[in-house]
Nucleic acid binder design. Structure first.
Lengths: 145, 145
DNA sequence: TATACTTGTTTGCAACTTCAACTATTCTAC
DNA sequence: GTAGAATAGTTGAAGTTGCAAACAAGTATA
């Protein structure tokens, strides 16, 4: 018997969320390509400031990825002159991460390009639908954690 | 100037979709771990039948991944005895992919485990909300392609 | 203070995915 | 029918990520 039950509502949503993510991520990659950043690198830059340092681990947990991923990603960003590691004055194990001047520039350009693209793509839904969707997604998100 | 505009509605939704995807994918990985499959391997098995062959490229485009990814993924599945490559009678370049007996078993178990888990996780939303969400996601999805 | 436990970061290793180049076959257009 | 383009699949090299173990430094407990 090869017959399977038709996929449940929940599974359909799961698949839709998956496919939408793939499409969005692909779009992000294309847009960010102009800045030389991957989506994850972009996400890290987005969370940094020029003056105020952040610890690698904190960024890692925010982005749902393990510490070693951040270590190597920061290695790349640092090699590219976008960020700088500085020792944490309060905890000698930790590193504080700050944007360089160039990092600020690149980040701001990336944010501009990215949010324009996101606006454009999400414009498939009108304002009312977007509010509705956000509400549902927020509920789902907080339920999943 | 470090001030940035507060993120737009569209960007918020983008971020929510991203975070939800990460959480769902992580859950999938945990559930599927019992079957030894990655989410992508599972997705391939889901699209196969015992008797009816499918071409690698078709599966690849359905799953939004490049041909070489499918080649190696199928290498793994074939080494594990879950699928079998057979030459396409109509096109000597192509390979038809079929599930083995064991493949059917593993796939069915995986589908069972996976959809149970998905039901459980999506149950955060009640039925009405799920219908609403599906409608919005479908619209977004078809708009993004 | 000595001991064990936790935390922040890095490193080696393995797995997975992609890109580009390649072979073999099929399709198209003259 | 034949030259050139397109398609199916594979392969090698490179990039990204995660896991486990290491190390250093902080915290807690006796």
């Amino acid at each position: 018997m090869e017959m399977l039950d038709s996929p449940s509502l929940a599974c359909e949503q799961h698949r839709l969320l998956h496919d939408i993510y793939i499409l969005l991520d692909d779009g992000d990659r294309q847009v960010l390509d102009a800045t030389g950043l991957t989506p994850l690198e972009f996400a890290v830059l987005q969370r940094l400031h020029r003056d105020q340092g952040r610890r690698l681990t904190d960024i890692g947990t925010e982005l749902f990825c393990v510490k070693s991923t951040i270590t190597r990603l920061v290695d790349r960003l640092e090699a590219g002159g976008l960020v700088r590691r500085t020792p944490d004055p309060d905890d000698r194990r930790a590193q504080r991460l700050r944007l360089t001047t160039r990092g600020v520039l690149v980040r701001d350009q990336a944010i501009r390009l990215h949010s324009e693209a996101v606006e454009r793509r999400m414009a498939v839904l009108n304002n009312e639908e977007q509010f509705l969707l956000r509400g549902l997604l927020e509920k789902l998100h907080s339920g999943l954690r």
